[in-house]
Design a protein around this nucleic acid. Structure first.
Lengths: 220, 220, 220, 220
DNA sequence: AATGAATGAGAATTCATTCAT
DNA sequence: AATGAATGAATTCTCATTCAT
């Protein structure tokens, strides 16, 4: 665990504006890796290159830091996706592929994916944060995908399926892929290739949702 | 100090053998709900109906308890599945369906599903347990499913896909469903129905893997 | 500050019943001498001959310990005094003398006098304890003395004075004497002699409250 | 960075000299209300309207601030009283009344009364300040009152009493009245009226010290 | 085997003090 | 002179672990 003591700087440095972000980034890393309880604030501070006390200038206590980590890293991406869906023209399979790929590029492949792991691991300990997360992220995210499924069905590009359930079946493997990224023990032998995984998934979804070729019965 | 041969004890006192199991069960519940660090041994003992000291008669320390929890709850189911696959006759889609359903019935729907969440959450803190878990469970589990996929391809019942990747795409949603069971915040509105989820998933996999209908080219 | 490490005992000793009292006694000493904030729980524990952690088996936190110290040491003495007043027969001056002497013997001269100093010093920091103390001790104590004054007036043994104010004038010097006992810096030269102080006070009160000799002016 | 000669500053900026006084006043308020340890320098600075750092321009550290608070608020009044006593002509009871009333008007009713409470509360933590305070204030104050008592006895206006003890009996209730002013919890119902208290006290002292009417035995 | 009082190392949190600006 | 961000020593509080009974 290399603690970045990148300081040949003066004993301290005045940079009130950058600090919170640096601390949040450090906290995200450690919370994701170790969980809430096992993360020591000393380490967060050290990783951010400040002293323990400094942390308390910006966050009232450990729990507030945790909440801030969740809060700060969540919202922005959803709006873009919502817009994309609204504007998209083309086959719904294509839309689904684009969305999944975007999701991965913008969240799954970044540190933000850690938040998901964090919420799965800690939701039992922080019911209010969990509720908040569910409302602001999970619900909106599900609605997003559900709209795609509904569009597919409406345009007769997808078989008629239960959109709520189908949505979750779509989401689950992507989420799981995000979680795996933070379960390092998997890296041995045969590491998971996100792109291969997603291509396979998308392929599966495309075929699985496509309307049965009507031509088969036509010839007669 | 009454000297008592254990075999002469009345029935209600022969808890000796049951104790470790009760403790492991209690520990599983709490570790899954709260994580390793946030679980207090007081509570584990209380939930098992014994005193804190008693715990140390059976487990050297907290970490050993954790390892025991993982160890005790993993192995047994895999052998059955391995045998099922070896013996199965019929369409591979049917085999896949059976296996997934069994998996859910025997693991996903039980407390054992908590182990998966636990390993995802704590693998960073217990690399050796993670490695052990990976070897004993993950690898064997993946191999199991992979054999099905390979069988499907070999029998020309499945499209030719990369078995390793396809395996993970199959596993991921089931695992995620297991995790969700332990993230209570989901329970609001619209709870996830495991059976509907799995049926939808199996349907998708069946269609997604099925060999392209050769009939389409027949008419000529 | 000799910390009584009177332990040639085993590493610890099981005596659940005595512990709270020992801890309260130690806490009283230190709170009185240093005040709430300046008292360290380590020291309280050390003075009671136990470890820091043991304190928390009996008191939830520092503030609860403080409250317990105040609560435990106050109430019992008042009941006795109330009864004495009710039964007393004789001149009210004599009753007043007896009460003051008793007060000193049972409280002023003991460790309990420290509570008064404590409440004066800390009432600003613990409004709720202050309120509690006021209701349970101050009010009852004032009522006690006031009843004496009223009796004196009723029996024409005391001049008619405002009982409420007179009561406080009686109480104040005794309280102050109690406070001085805990302001060690006074001990230099000329230490205060509680008995001489109280005798002088009682003498003063006796003469000051006595009904003016009516005979002097009558003869003419 | 505008370079400004302090002497060219507009009137409202020449706070330089006032600063220490403002800080001392703020510190007095908080030390009295909360005690030394529970007073945070942040709050002192905030109450004085400056930043924490500024405090250190005027006082080396918290303890020096405390000492300065005590030092600055003690001395001045005693000289006047000493002179008053030297010059006074009239009955000693009158002198005593005047002195007590002055004492209250000039000290008891002002913030200075807080110093007494502070010294009672903190003398254990600051033995040297206590000694200093004792020598400069307590001793001189006692001497002052003692001189009155001695004058009364010498002029045959007071009964012969032990002047040292009598002095303390006089002082104690006034001091206690000062302390009560800073123990807010008393304010409920029935607040103490300083003037009524002092009148009652003075009345008591006057009668209590007066020489027994020699006339009683004269009638013949 | 079981208990639970006692321990003490370790983590969170506070706040007097410093010092670059 | 004034500021206030940064520091870290000191203190409260927690909880895994021990061990006499």
């Amino acid at each position: 665990m290399p603690i970045a003591d990148a300081r040949t700087k003066p004993r301290w440095e005045r940079r009130k504006d950058a600090r919170p972000q640096e601390l949040l980034a450090a906290a995200l890393d450690l919370f994701v890796e170790r969980g809430f309880a096992a993360t020591r604030l000393d380490e967060v501070a050290a990783l951010a290159g400040v002293s323990k006390g400094t942390l308390y200038l910006y966050f009232e206590n450990k729990e507030e830091l945790f909440k801030a980590v969740v809060r700060e890293n969540m919202v922005p991406q959803l709006a873009d996706a919502e817009e994309l869906i609204a504007r998209f023209e083309g086959h719904t399979s294509e839309l689904l592929r684009t969305c999944i790929k975007n999701w991965w590029a913008r969240i799954g492949a970044t540190k933000l994916s850690g938040i998901s792991k964090l919420m799965i691991a800690e939701s039992g300990n922080f019911p209010d944060v969990a509720r908040f997360y569910h409302e602001e992220v999970v619900s909106r995210g599900e609605a997003l995908i559900r709209r795609i499924v509904e569009r597919g069905i409406a345009l007769d590009e997808f078989r008629p399926v239960d959109p709520v359930t189908a949505t979750r079946v779509i989401i689950a493997p992507v989420l799981m892929l995000m979680m795996w990224r933070h379960s390092l023990h998997y890296c041995h032998l045969d590491p998971i290739e996100p792109d291969a995984f997603l291509d396979c998934l998308i392929d599966l979804l495309t075929r699985g949702f496509e309307t049965p070729a009507p031509s088969t019965s036509l010839p007669e």
